[in-house]
Design a binder for these strands. Structure first.
Lengths: 246, 246
DNA sequence: CGAGCGGTTGAGGCATGTCAAGAGTTGTGG
DNA sequence: CCACAACTCTTGACATGCCTCAACCGCTCG
């Protein structure tokens, strides 16, 4: 591991509050790996021997079943992934592959489990992180069950705009193909939906998103703090924690 | 709270490993309530002031958005629900209503948060519980995105059969209306799907499920340990933790 | 007994997936 | 440097899964 990696990891919520000695202990048993693009570094069903942290590049979490495949999440630096499996010492429920060349830290699960018995602040951090992850997946499930594809697309695009600081125009952070899978639809359907949203306040130019009428698009997407996260302008409810990635 | 409630709560994974003194401290600040059937005791968006435990009866967790509504989970005794919101001191993401008359324990969230800073064993239990909940929702999301409604129904019915001990026949634990919503479909569609599954090894008689050809039904459902939980007979993968409720 | 509700069934429509073809882009190797 | 392969994205035609609306049955409960 490179010395300049450590401060970045230390800044994560998960590791911010533990003692310096314990942090260093955890890091000495860990190591860093550089993966090429498109490499499947985690295969669902394998034992979760390591907690992973993306330092550079980006990672796709996806799931397979009976020949089908779908994107579950996209992980950008700096964040951890598959914490739950590491903790339960259980098989990964999702696979992971690099979307671009990526630098990944691996922390042995057993060290992790030992550590939160020793460091109370760390265990509190783990609890908070897990609770946040849980809520994130619940939001995901809600959007899948309550919204149709058109609404999912519109709310996704709006949310991205808001996370980027309320900008009118931005570039999609991922390929449309991937986005389609994440939103639970086919690439063809996404393509058509994007075209159909012209006239509802949206304009696409390749991977460039242009919000031509935010009010109109918002009326269609009906962003909700209990689905899209507290940062989205919207309705009456809620307050409080980071929204879903991707 | 009734004295006979305590042992039941104590047996939960969440409270099993904490010290007796801490358990008693937590219980003295808690109280029990009896709710009539159909009462919405938690409304999504409200602050999560209490961790809930179902002792008797059953509870439906559901979500609303823009006039639509769907069932997210069914909670049977004895289990906790909405642990994550209590911990994050965040608004509930889901609403809850009683499906029948229910006896519920309420533990103040602030006491809960204070407790896992004091009792290491308890914090480990919370971590394990949250990780299990997280994985449960991920499974749920996987089944929604990877399987069509026919496959969801078939795998649900098979899983119930297996959880009941591999029985050939059993009664649905919930109304079909509710089950449909849980599985992400309309009651009409569920009704038709159940009828269509005759000829694939299934026979319905009202709320009674009869598996006439397990091999055939299994071939259709393709149960997977990484979706349906480790208890289902099936493919190569996985080992390890409780499956989704309902 | 009548109202209300869950369940079923049918008819019809819309949303979404499938299949196929073509344009544009990127990466690679000769 | 070009040719080619591979891939994404788009578009069209078509099939189908699923929903909507409506009617009806049977049951429960006031």
């Amino acid at each position: 591991m490179r010395p300049e990696d450590l401060p970045e990891i230390r800044h994560l919520h998960l590791f911010r509050d533990m003692t310096q000695a314990n942090f260093e202990a955890l890091m000495t048993s860990s190591y860093a790996l550089n993966f090429p693009q498109g490499l499947e570094m985690i295969r669902q069903g394998d034992p979760a021997d390591f907690l992973h942290i993306v330092l550079e590049g980006s990672v796709e979490l996806f799931a397979r079943w009976g020949g089908r495949e779908c994107t579950m999440a996209m992980v950008q630096p700096v964040s951890t992934f598959i914490l739950a499996a590491s903790i339960r010492d259980a098989p990964y429920l999702m696979s992971a592959r690099t979307l671009e060349r990526a630098r990944i830290i691996l922390i042995p699960s057993s060290d992790l489990r030992a550590m939160f018995r020793r460091d109370t602040e760390f265990s509190v951090s783990v609890i908070n992180e897990l609770a946040a992850c849980y809520r994130s997946v619940v939001r995901n499930a809600k959007t899948l069950k309550l919204r149709n594809s058109r609404e999912r697309v519109a709310s996704y695009l709006l949310r991205q705009s808001i996370l980027a600081g309320g900008v009118v125009s931005y570039t999609l952070p991922v390929e449309k193909r991937l986005l389609a899978s994440y939103l639970g639809m086919t690439p063809e359907n996404l393509s058509r939906t994007l075209k159909a949203l012209e006239g509802d306040g949206l304009k696409m130019d390749g991977a460039r998103v242009i919000i031509t009428d935010r009010a109109k698009l918002t009326a269609l997407a009906q962003p909700d703090k209990l689905i899209d996260g507290p940062d989205v302008a919207g309705n009456e409810n809620g307050a409080g924690l980071p929204s879903t990635r991707l």
